[in-house]
């Protein structure tokens, strides 16, 4: 495994060049950075994790909620709320009729592939392209609201942005979807943004995190 690099696969993360020094594992036909020289302590402090290769999908239409329910996934009651399934998938409700589902590290996103195999309702439910249109990175640790306050004009402190809340907003002047969740007790903001701007946002966030001792982490830091 140690000789594996992101370029060993035809599916590549949008920021794989920023991950020098990582150890990688094969996830969903791509390379996921699992370990750097830091670990859980860094994730608790301030970490930046690239989850681009982890599967995710989305559905839009008046029958999208029905499609998710049929697949056994939870359906958040209101827009801009997220719920976690028992298996660890995050279901994001972005509007009355748009949902994204983010895969879980527990099964390396296998459940998403299964979901994508399910036949869609014959009308009014369209699969979305968020695996490719959007980049997925996760900001972790104790200083999340303070870090985001350096790039984003929305108050993301606990009192106004609780676990399970979603903000569709602008960060570092690009459109982002920010989800507040938790992995194994570590506070996380998962950020989905234009995949073509992935390297830009990566650099902007690392710069914002420096003040809080932030570093790039691997997925095992959340284990």
């Amino acid at each position: 495994m140690s000789t594996m690099t992101p370029e060993s696969f035809s599916k590549r993360s949008f920021v794989y060049r920023q991950l020098a020094g990582a150890e990688f594992a094969e996830v969903a036909g791509g390379a996921l950075a699992t370990d750097f020289k830091n670990g859980r302590a860094q994730a608790e402090k301030s970490g930046l994790l690239d989850l681009s290769v982890l599967p995710r999908t989305g559905f839009r239409g008046s029958r999208a909620a029905e499609h998710l329910k049929a697949a056994g996934l939870p359906v958040p009651a209101k827009p801009n709320q997220a719920e976690q399934s028992a298996n660890g998938e995050l279901v994001l409700r972005l509007s009355m009729k748009e949902f994204w589902v983010l895969g879980s590290l527990a099964d390396n996103g296998a459940a998403i592939d299964a979901l994508n195999q399910r036949p869609l309702p014959d009308s009014d439910c369209y699969a979305l392209y968020c695996q490719d249109s959007h980049n997925w990175i996760t900001l972790t640790g104790a200083a999340l609201p303070e870090t985001m306050a350096k790039v984003c004009g929305v108050d993301l402190r606990e009192a106004s942005f609780a676990r399970g809340a979603i903000a569709q907003t602008s960060a570092a002047r690009i459109n982002v979807i920010v989800v507040n969740h938790e992995v194994k007790g570590i506070p996380c903001f998962s950020i989905l943004s234009d995949s073509a701007s992935a390297e830009y946002l990566w650099e902007s966030l690392l710069d914002a995190m420096a003040e809080f001792g932030g570093e790039v982490i691997g997925s095992n830091a959340l284990a």
């Binding site: 827009p79 004009g153 903000a167 569709q168 907003t169 602008s170």
Partner: peptide, 17 residues
């Protein structure tokens, strides 16, 4: 900066609109 209330997303800086 002015704030506008989006019916879907709530109060936001006018620069988001």
């Amino acid at each position: 900066m002015k704030i506008m209330h989006c019916p879907l997303n709530g109060p936001r800086n006018i620069s988001e609109f």
